[in-house]
Amino acid sequence: MSSVDSPPKRTPRYGSTPNPRPKKSWRKLLWVHQPYPDNYVDVSFLSQLKRNMHVQQYSFWALSSDSTVIISHVSTVALFICVFVVIYNFDWNPAWFAFSGSFFTLIGYFVWDYLGNNTTSRTATFKSAVLIVSTLLGLSPVLKSLTQSTSSDSIWAISVWLFLLNIFFHDYSVGPKKTVPPTLSTNLAISAAIVLASRLSTTLSVFSFLLFSIELFGLFPIFSRWLRSYSFIGHLFLTAFLIIITELGMLRIGGWWACGIWLAAVLSAALIAPGWLIALQKYKNEIQGPWDPAKPVLRNR
């Protein structure tokens, strides 16, 4: 070690390495005392680091078709608001909506019943329908006066919040698994309807309006959820139908401007937002490594 021979003078001895004390290669172990400093950084440092293991690759059309589920529900809410505005501002008869709503509900029920998804008997369904309708009829005077003393400005604000929460908590899942309790979003929407109903003039219009709201927010989501698991094409047709109806409603209450803005919103939700999400995927940076808590694999019993 002490001799400072220059390399050309040194004669190789039986293939020994020029290094006087050959170092063993570093191992990632704690129980051996290795001839390396404690802060040594090996080339294998972070070699077990994995990036973006669980990142899903989205396809544009899959995302776009999934967005129709959201569009369909948001259209329902928009349609309901249009209905309220034409009743409140343009003096349309609410009974008309109750009749058409009940008509579509019956069609929906028979389609659902015909395709064999019915577990309860028709008489039981009929009985509960009669019960709900008569209860609603009896309660209408009470519901009408419930928030009558509240000023209109507060009513608009409350109903906007309730509808926003309804859109947020709605169950958009496609499969049979339910993640959010569906009653929460239904309750929020019905409360919004009750709050708005206090602005109407007669008890009969309150009854008709609430009946329509129950059909739209209580029964229609069940049908729509079933339809999208039964036939996605059917769901697309239903969504297109809803968009057209909502567009007509927008045209009636706000003219071409409202119609155009709503169309732009629907198109951006269906086409621009999925593209944006895919474009943002390149910023995804998930880190996985041996330090992550392991996922235990248990046998199902």
Binding site: D38, N39, F45, L46, G289, P290
Partner: peptide, 24 residues
């Protein structure tokens, strides 16, 4: 306290690995 812990800490706190020592 371990090499895995060092890798984890270096990533979490964006440190220079040379200023992290492993002492079990």
């Amino acid at each position: 306290v371990s090499h895995t812990c060092k890798e984890n800490t270096v990533l979490r706190a964006s440190l220079d690995p040379n200023m992290v020592s492993v002492i079990p």
